[in-house]
Design a protein around this nucleic acid. Structure first.
Lengths: 246, 246
DNA sequence: GTAATAGTGTCTTTGAGACATTATCTA
DNA sequence: TAGATAATGTCTCAAAGACACTATTAC
């Protein structure tokens, strides 16, 4: 510690960064979706190499020397899910870089959070072997590799918050979608039941959340539901209320 | 790009990270406070070295090889403000690491956001020369070094959001504080005027936001105000409403 | 007393929660 | 027609905004 303070006590922070110790840079992805079979789900890969060989982990990889970090996240997402960037949502989550989180070296990982529509029935694992969707409620977080359990927990909390204050729930759906489908996104992510009528009123009265396409979805039975598209607004004002508080 | 894809197409992401290109790691700090003279203010330093010599920049520095990133942020904060960690607030903001943001090398910076009480009248610049508080409203963001204008903008947005949903406004104040002082924090950060009576009702009815100490503050004129301490809760439920929407 | 600031009470409006009713579709 | 699902309307209550009034201090 003394040594470190002495280092820092040099006249100015402006000297050559290449003289400083350097770290490896990766991105990790918390990719979330809603599926008919597994419900609210996250994409996990099985690690083939050491450390944590055989453990489940978040997909991710190294950032290339001249690549923007966001572009690295986009690239990994495309490789893992096969989905072209479109109506999905991708945002930076947080950065994890404690010494010792990777036993081999000092690795700093910038985590990203992605919301994916199923887009038909995309099968993950284009490049990565054994990439699979896992039901969020069934994952044992301390069985994940590295500190990925913590990253996943942070990502889930962020996702639940995003649905309160933003319209990003639509990113879980292909457009156009029904009001019921949008409500089921909320119910899956928040793990609650919402009143369909109050939900409908809240969404339609929130300016720019959704716009009706005028089309209706033919169904096998019952009244055909109105179809909607994302309305362009990012924020819900006032926010969605989640009476269940964390 | 082709070369990069080929690299990535190797069998597994588990090989030795030390074989990958590495980056320099820094922390940058958005330190905010409320001051009698400059109001809502941010701590900036004048750069002594290249690049951006003479420009204003956020305080920050390199992360030591065996140091946690959060600890590096705490250390820089202590060095720049001289304040011991106490009732202040420090959280990770975001990470900025685009190639080219530092002309010398690939430098990835993890930005932190800090709320500081003035603590008497702390004079920044213990170690760092020419560290000064600058009124947030008067800063020309594109005159800051590197991408610090963007980091500052992101920090301000985060700070304004934090006051809506959390009790962190108390971190701007020494305890105990008056209700008027707390309201002035909101008015400074949001740049609005708030009704003192509605504000008082909202704060006192929000569970765990503040607790009255029972003491009163002697004043030169007018009724002596009740003193409060932070109440322990982190979240305001329901949140503070900022009718001015961004 | 006056001047100044702190704190409380009341009315109105907005919006969330609960829940009954009407509309539209298929078989 | 029945059965199923979608959409709308109404009532109640909680909370935010506007604003008048009372309380406490120094002089």
């Amino acid at each position: 510690m003394r040594r470190q303070r002495d280092l820092d006590a040099q006249p100015d922070p402006g000297y050559d960064p290449s003289h400083w110790p350097r770290v490896s840079l990766t991105v990790d992805l918390v990719v979330l979706t809603i599926r008919p079979d597994t419900g609210f789900s996250v994409l996990l890969v099985e690690r083939g190499g050491r450390p944590f060989k055989g453990y489940l982990a978040l997909p991710g990889g190294f950032v290339f020397p001249d690549e923007r970090i966001l572009d690295a996240a986009r690239r990994e997402l495309q490789e893992e899910t096969g989905i072209e960037p479109g109506f999905d949502h991708l945002e930076q989550l947080a950065t994890y870089g404690d010494p010792g989180r990777d036993s081999r070296d000092r690795v700093v990982s910038v985590a990203y959070l992605a919301f994916e529509a199923r887009a038909g029935d995309v099968r993950p694992g284009g490049d990565a072997a054994k990439a699979m969707w896992h039901s969020v409620s069934k994952i044992k977080r301390n069985h994940l590799a590295f500190d990925h359990g913590q990253i996943l927990a942070d990502g889930l909390e962020r996702a639940r918050n995003r649905l309160e204050y933003t319209t990003y729930a639509t990113a879980f759906l292909d457009s156009p979608f029904t009001m019921t489908a949008l409500r089921e996104v909320y119910e899956a992510v928040w793990d609650v039941r919402l009143d369909p009528r109050n939900f409908h009123r809240k969404v339609t009265s929130s300016d720019g959340f959704v716009i009706p396409t005028g089309e209706k979805l033919p169904t096998s039975k019952g009244r055909s539901p109105q179809l909607y598209a994302p309305g362009g607004a990012e924020h819900i004002i006032p926010p969605m209320r989640r009476s269940d508080m964390s």
